[in-house]
Amino acid sequence: MAVTVPILRQGSVLIASIQEDLCDSDILNLQSRILEDVIKCRAKAVIIDVSAIGVLDSFGTKTLTEIAYSVKMRGAETVIVGIQPDVALSMVLLGLTLRDIPTALDLDHGLALIGGS
């Protein structure tokens, strides 16, 4: 069954809070919805909360990176928050990085990083 990730708007910030592990097509769906919403809402920043995710593999990481770079093209920034310690370790060992993409401990730290809401 397809999972639709809620994207909340808070001022000029979009917050996508992933609630469970997503399959590849769900991640691609999230990607296109974030890009649409960034334009529609004239968002300045996007926060993607991945704290409920138990696996971030090569496809998930590649897609998050693509989202962040595409959002940047719109003049907005993306912060990935809440990567769990085990997930972070797996990513590093697998050889995955989120190069140049800001990350933060949790949603509060993410909001602080982009200068509040």
């Binding site: 696996v55 971030l56 593999d57 997930v87 797996s90 697998l94």
Partner: peptide, 13 residues
């Protein structure tokens, strides 16, 4: 838990 995540990630790939 770290090994569980590694196993899940390997299976995912």
């Amino acid at each position: 838990r770290p090994d569980q995540a590694l196993i899940a990630t390997a299976i995912s790939e």
